[in-house]
């Protein structure tokens, strides 16, 4: 049995040690577990489960938190100094 597993974290393939839990993953990534949401294989994990859920080969992990945003998708925002007079 290999010591590492291959998982997807936020869309990136990562090799991780076999016995790691979600809490371990967050610690290794230097992410404080407060105010993040974790989804494993499309299932949202309760914060209390972070230390219990161990990662398996092929797991798709999403780690999300709050960023600046108003009404629009921040990824589509334009430079604020770039004034477009379309009217």
């Amino acid at each position: 049995m290999q010591d590492t597993i291959r998982i997807q974290v936020n869309g990136e393939a990562r090799d991780w040690r076999r016995d790691a839990t979600v809490a371990d993953l967050l610690r290794d990534l230097e992410i404080t577990s407060e105010r993040v949401a974790v989804e494993v294989n499309l299932e949202i994990l309760d914060r209390a489960m972070f230390a219990q859920r161990s990662l398996k080969d092929g797991d798709r992990v999403e780690i999300l938190s709050f960023i600046g945003g108003g009404g629009e998708s921040p990824r589509r925002s334009t430079d604020r100094r770039k004034c477009v007079h379309s009217l």
């Binding site: 974290v9 990534l29 992410i31 105010r35 993040v36 780690i63 938190s65 709050f66 945003g69």
Partner: peptide, 28 residues
Amino acid sequence: TVAVRRVNITDRSKENLLDYIDPKKYTI
């Protein structure tokens, strides 16, 4: 208001919005 997005896992030096906007002071 805030948006929900993936945490940057490659560059952890990036600061968190909630370090500047205290959830005890504001309704998030």
